[in-house]
């Protein structure tokens, strides 16, 4: 059974990032669903720690890029360098050729650079000078970003936000955990001690199992009611797209597996609805782009789990 492995994963990451088990479970679900993850929060909330810890427990090779405003696309995907010895251009792979790419503060880079990364995420390959280079399997991007209201940022365009399966905020730790943090050592120091919990084969087995998680008709009805609601309600400028719907079901499956179930129940959908839908929905009242969360609560509250009549 896959459950012990997943629990070990959760535990291993939880040892580094204290008191954030729900977010850890969501993050793991996102990765098991082969989705890219966007961590969004203020600096110092543990985004980087979480992404590092995830990469390490998954036992994957990882690269980290600190995004800055002068970062060029080539700095991510690599460049063809002229080798005077062979008189040939050689492709020097950029950091994107890793199994886990940690893109720190992705919104600090210019849209052009962001675009290069997002394209690679979508296509799972890189094309330079007419040559395509496949990215490794598995390939995850864990990006972090500061809320867009911060100065000197380039917010990710909405059309590209949905390349990320989930967007997760960590939030402040609760006081008890914070006290632990204050007492103890910097969690980042613990990162070095984290051991891989999974082999690559185990990871791909787990990923395959996600698709076997049962989704009943009743559940699909519920999902469709949610989608219809976002499209009909005036609360939203645009409803959720079919792609968002597929992402929702996939995430719910994965989350159900993380929760140790072989079928999806409405609570799974509700749990992943925020991370999956928030960054894809913009509310009618939402000018700053940050009412998504409130809107998702609204959806959950207004769409009955059990069909009436």
């Amino acid at each position: 059974m896959s459950q012990p492995i997943i629990e070990r994963l959760v535990k291993a990451v939880g040892a580094i990032l204290l008191g954030k088990e729900p977010q850890i479970r969501l993050a793991i679900a996102c990765l098991l669903a082969k989705g890219h993850l966007l961590l969004e929060d203020l600096p110092g909330m543990g985004k980087t720690t979480l992404s590092h810890a995830l990469a390490r427990v998954l036992g994957l090779s990882y690269q980290r890029i600190q995004f800055t405003s002068d970062l060029l696309p080539a700095d991510i995907i690599g460049t063809s360098i002229f080798n005077p010895g062979s008189s040939h251009f050689e492709f020097r792979k950029g950091p994107v050729f890793a199994e886990v790419l940690l893109a720190d503060e992705i919104n600090r880079a210019t849209p052009k650079t962001q675009g290069a990364l997002l394209e690679a995420m979508e296509e799972r390959q890189v094309t330079v000078e007419g040559h395509s280079y496949a990215l490794p399997q598995p390939f995850f991007v864990i990006a972090t970003q500061n809320p867009v209201t911060q100065m000197g940022t380039f917010p990710l365009p909405e059309s590209q936000l949905d390349r990320f399966l989930m967007r997760i905020s960590l939030g402040y730790p609760d006081p008890r955990i914070e006290r632990e943090l204050l007492k103890g050592s910097n969690p980042r120091d613990l990162l070095e001690s984290v051991q891989a919990v999974l082999t690559k084969d185990e990871l791909s087995t787990l990923q395959k199992k996600v698709d076997a998680i049962h989704v009943s008709d009743a559940l699909l009805d519920y999902v469709q009611r949610i989608l219809a609601y976002t499209r009909q309600s005036n609360q939203f400028v645009f409803g959720l797209s079919p792609r968002a719907g597929m992402a929702l079901v996939k995430s719910a499956r994965s989350f159900a597996m993380v929760q140790g179930r072989d079928h999806v129940i409405p609570e799974d959908v509700q749990a992943v609805l925020g991370p999956v839908a928030e960054h894809r929905l913009s509310g009618a009242r939402d000018i700053t782009g940050h009412e998504g969360e409130r809107l998702v609560d609204h959806v959950i509250k207004h769409v009955d789990v059990i069909p009436r009549r």
């Binding site: 129940i265 609570e267 509700q270 207004h302 789990v305």
Partner: peptide, 9 residues
């Protein structure tokens, strides 16, 4: 039960 409350919750 609230309308949006799942059975397990």
């Amino acid at each position: 039960r609230a309308a949006g409350e799942g059975p397990q919750d």
